[in-house]
């Protein structure tokens, strides 16, 4: 048995923490970004679209280096964990905003008209009519994004966050057995993604059996 498996597995917590925290930040920040990017006012819409495009066009690795190595020069110093979570969280907001936007356009205009005609306030329309249908439409795409974010979290190892990949690197240097080490690391990522993919499919088909949207 590979004796360092336990040491590598201890990195699961870190990887999961970065993924979950960055995803949560992205999912939250993505909402105002998506709403703003569909605003009727150009002065709201254009900045939002620009932010989304800039965030998505620069590789995450470059954003990480920019925050970790660049910001200290202007006096902003974040630790490796904070850098990884905040940076991946903010870039995720752009990807998730685009996913939300796609969901919006999938919903019929009739839903909006009907809820207006019933006298629901803008908040209630969002909360009780739009959001639940949107969640239904975008949840499979969001799950796919969560899986890719789980893999992106490995980038954090480059700025010294001791997560799965970082631990794999240490072990392979110590043992010289890169093959076994990274097969183990790879299998751990696989085991983390599979339940996510499986749960997403289950939830999706269960909801689909009840109702479809759009």
């Amino acid at each position: 048995m590979f004796q360092y498996t336990g040491y590598i597995l201890a990195g699961v917590g870190g990887t999961v923490a970065i993924t979950v925290a960055a995803f949560a930040i992205g999912a939250l920040l993505g909402v105002p970004l998506a709403v703003a990017s569909r605003s009727g006012h150009r002065l709201v819409r254009w900045p939002a679209i620009s932010v989304i495009e800039v965030l998505r066009s620069v590789p995450n690795l470059v954003w990480l280096f920019l925050v970790f190595f660049g910001l200290p020069e202007v006096g902003i110093r974040l630790g490796p964990w904070a850098t990884a979570i905040l940076t991946l969280g903010v870039t995720s907001s752009a990807y998730l905003a685009e996913i939300y936007r796609g969901g919006f356009s999938g919903l019929g205009q009739g839903q909006w008209l009907a809820s207006k005609a019933l006298g629901l306030t803008t908040w209630d329309r969002g909360r009780h009519v739009l959001a639940p249908q949107l969640a239904r439409v975008v949840s499979p795409t969001m799950a796919t994004y969560a899986i890719s974010l789980l893999k992106e979290s490995a980038l954090a190892s480059t700025i010294g966050v001791v997560e799965l990949t970082f631990r794999g690197g240490l072990v392979s240097q110590r043992t010289g057995d890169g093959l076994t080490t990274f097969v183990v690391v790879g299998v751990v990522y696989l085991l983390l993604s599979l339940p996510l993919a499986y749960t997403s499919r289950r939830v999706d088909s269960r909801l689909r059996a009840k109702f479809s949207v759009g």
Binding site: G108, G110, Q111, L113, A114, S115, A117, L118, G119, L120, T121, D124, H128, V129, P132, Q133, R136, F211, S212, V213
Partner: peptide, 22 residues
């Protein structure tokens, strides 16, 4: 409306009740 525009994610009962409550 011509196309009914019921809320597909709510049951018939909830469709009729939602706005009464809100």
């Amino acid at each position: 409306f011509q196309n009914f525009n019921l809320f597909p994610h709510l049951t018939v009962l909830r469709n009729v009740s939602l706005a009464q409550e809100r």
